[in-house]
């Protein structure tokens, strides 16, 4: 990617000779892939709900499919953001909703129940990936009750705070005398 961005660099500006290691972990890449997948699926659900309901034999539920599409897009955007963990948990929750909706369509009189079973299998697989990614991308911030180092001796005033305060007061007093 940086090879393309080098086009806009001024001659003489440093360019990469050898890339260093990235701190991106495989779970970050998985989160990214799931985020884009979520957006893609959401776009299909939002713009082609009829195609989805026909495939699953649940015609008449286009509005619900559209709503699920919006949910997928939002969860996808969140999974691609710095708050990816929240996005991935949102996807896990969404997987549950998807499974519930699919199960409700798995009736004996549905001629497309085979497709629903296949979709359920896919949702299950994706849900496992979502759950794994959500577990692995937990924020690394220390918990609120973690022991922290404190810095009670770092005043920054080598002569002490009182000296800094009194110097400031003297300057202010001189300024007042100067004005009167």
């Amino acid at each position: 990617m940086f090879h393309f961005s080098n086009i806009v660099r001024t001659k003489g500006d440093p360019r990469i000779v050898e890339g260093g290691p990235s701190l991106k972990r495989p779970e970050d890449q998985l989160a990214r892939a799931l985020g884009w997948f979520s957006i893609g699926l959401g776009v299909v659900e939002f713009f082609a709900p009829r195609r989805v309901t026909e495939t699953l034999g649940v015609e008449g539920h286009e509005t619900l499919v559209r709503a699920f599409g919006v949910r997928e897009i939002l969860a996808g955007i969140m999974s691609l953001s710095v708050d990816k963990n929240a996005g991935l948990w949102a996807r896990v929750g969404g997987d549950g909703l998807d499974a519930a909706a699919l199960l409700s369509g798995l009736t004996a009189d549905n001629p497309k129940k085979g497709n629903i079973a296949l979709a359920l299998l896919m949702v299950g697989g994706i849900a496992m990936l979502d759950y794994r990614a959500a577990q692995d991308t937990k924020p690394q911030r220390p918990p609120r009750d973690a022991r922290r180092k404190l810095y009670p001796n770092r005043s920054g005033f080598p002569k002490g705070i009182e000296s800094a305060r009194s110097a400031a007061k003297q300057i202010a007093a001189h300024a007042t005398v100067g004005q009167s």
Binding site: F2, P14, R15, V17, E18, G19, G20, P21, L23, K24
Partner: peptide, 19 residues
């Protein structure tokens, strides 16, 4: 060097020159 969101790496780059 910035490579993208949350991706900064310690790379080897060419030395700067007087421009």
């Amino acid at each position: 060097v910035w490579h993208g969101k949350e991706d900064i790496r310690c790379d080897t780059v060419t030395d700067p020159e007087i421009q």
